[in-house]
Design a protein around this nucleic acid. Sequence first.
DNA 1: AACTCGGGGCT
DNA 2: AGCCCAGAGTT
Length: 361
Amino acid sequence: MQAANKLKKQLTAAKFAEEVLTWQHQHGRHDLPWQQPATPYRVLVSEIMLQQTQVSTVIPYFQRWMQALPTLEALASANEDEVMALWQGLGYYSRARNLQKAAHYIVHELNGKFPEELESIQKIPGVGRYTAGAIRSFAYDTYGPIVDGNVRRLFCRIFGIEGPPTSSAVNKELWQYAETLTPEKNNRRFAQGLLDLGATLCTKRNPSCQDCPFASSCVAFQEQRITELPNPKAKKAIPTKIGHFLWIENLENNSLRLVKRPSKGIWASLWSLPEVSEKPLEAELKGSFKHVFSHYKLEAKVWAMTSANVEIMNHLEEANPEYQLPTDAVADLENSKTLNSLGLPTPIRAFIETHWQTKAE
DNA sequence: AACTCGGGGCT
DNA sequence: AGCCCAGAGTT
C-alpha cells in the first residue's frame, strides 16, 4: 500500500516498533492508575473517560469510580443516578450512559465474558475503533492498532501527511499506518509508547524534537514544518442560544425543584433546574449565567417562581412531556447529601450553590 | 461528511 | 479568547 511504500524509504515497520518500545521503556509513563492492574474492566473505564478528556482530569474520577464500582457486575447493577453522579463534571455524559450499557451488555448478553476479538470488542456500546484497539493492546497485550489525537499528530509529522487532519482521506491513511506499524508482540508497551510520544514529546506546541527517536526521519522536523503538520483545522463560529430555567422553592420544607433531564440531548440523564422554552409570564429574574459547549454558547436566565407551584409544574409537564417529573424529583437543599447523590451539570450546580448560600445568610 | 454530544487546562 | 484533549454515535 501507499503507507508501506512511503515507510520503506525511511524506516521499516520493525524498526519503528523497536524505537517506540525502547523509548517507552526509558521515557514513557509507567505509573498511570489504570496500568496496574490493566484488567479489561479498568481499561474500558479509563479509555471511555479519556475520550476527549486529559489524563490529569481523568485520574481523580477514575480513582473514585473504581472505589465505588470496582467490577463490571457492580456497574451493571448500579443505580443510574449514582453513575451519573460519579461522572458529574466530566462532560459528554452519553459516555457514562454507554458505559453502563456496556456493563449490561457484557454481563447479561455475553455471560460476563469480556470479548477479546477486535470486532467483538467494538460491538460494546461506546467503543469505537480506537477504544477497541486500546483494549486489545492494554488489557490483553495483543495486536490492536490505535489512532487518536496523539497518534494523528505523531504520524502526520513523521510521515508528512497533508490534508484536513480529521478528513476521511487522512483518517484512512492514518489507520493504514497504524495497522502496518503495530507489531504482533509487546502491544501494551507499543500502544503506550505511541500515546506517550504524542502526549509528552510530540506535543502540539514546542515539541521536544531533540529528544525524539524519529527526528532524523521526521518530515515535519527535517523540513521545519512542525507548526504546519498536522494541518490546522478549519475553525467555525458557534451560535449563541438563550436558555430559560425555573427556580421553584417550597418554603414549607425548604426544598428546591429539580427534574431529571431526558436521556437524549444536552446534559442527558442529569438532574437540573426545570428548563422551559420561553420566559414564564409572572416571574422575576433570580440570576443568570453563561456556559460554553463544544458547538454553542448558552446564555441562561433563571426565573424565580414564588407562588402557584402546582399549576406551574402542571404547565411544565404539558409543555415538556419528555421530562420525567416523579415525586422524588425534589432536592432538599438543607441536606447537601441529597444534591451530591445526583449528577448535575456543572453550571447548574454552581448556580444553585451560589444562590442557596446567599439565601441562608 | 457533517453534526451532536462537556468541561477543564493551557496559552 | 481560542484551541486541544487516549472519540463515538447519529443523521
